[in-house]
Amino acid sequence: MATERRFRVWRGDAKGGDFHDYTVPVEEGEVVLDVMHRLQAQQANDLAVRWNCKAGKCGSCSAEVNGHPTLMCMTRMSDFPPDDVVTVSPIRTFPVIRDLVTDVSFNYEVAKRIVPFQPRPMTEEEKEAGSYLLAQEDIDRLQEFRKCIECFLCQNVCHVIRDHEENKRNFAGPRFFIRNAELEMHPLDTADRRDQLQDEFGLGYCNITKCCTEVCPEGIHITDNGIIPLKERVVDKRYDPIAWLGRKIGFAKDQRRL
């Protein structure tokens, strides 16, 4: 049993655009993406929408619904009161291509600059077993970060670049902080990314205000489990005089390798 619902959808491209009003029938149990598809099939064939899985697994359908950064395929219409005019707009932080589709290439460019995984060589025992031997408790922490579906909602909501375009040059964004965290905490990895994180990726720009964590559809504790531990690791290397002294006299070891 369908009910007529009202929507305001941003339509346009880099040259300009505006909100357009539509009335669309909505069925029980539907999500915002369903409505955009119905709109596309029936009233606006050329409405640009990016999506893939419609199950919250691919992270393609990021947009802002009533101003909240969210996955359209996981935002149920029943969350809004029936008389609400639902606003749907493209994510703000990245250049718009058309309608709800934005150019997220910023993120792919950052990804290229990350120091890749550099595993240590296998031990004799491992060679025999034919695989690395890893304890589950050593990877539990990393598996949380590996859940990331690269929806870039955290990148979009982060005020460091959302409100300051010029910071894009010096800031990698929360998605890539947790990517670095995952590599830095990896029991096999041998590289050191802390200087790059602080100097090039702008870890210091993050003021841990946690909006990234609030919007993450995978519920990753980006700030608490990723960014803050990274900041602490940077402190170890750069801002802790006692630790620094300890290393100088050969007293303390780099604990990450232990």
Partner: peptide, 23 residues
């Protein structure tokens, strides 16, 4: 964007003037 190295910071965001659309 074939291996350009530099991130794209071109701008060209959707023209939405409201400070927030949150209700």
């Amino acid at each position: 964007r074939v291996a350009t190295g530099e991130p794209e910071t071109a701008g060209g965001r959707a023209s939405i003037s409201a400070r927030t659309l949150r209700k």
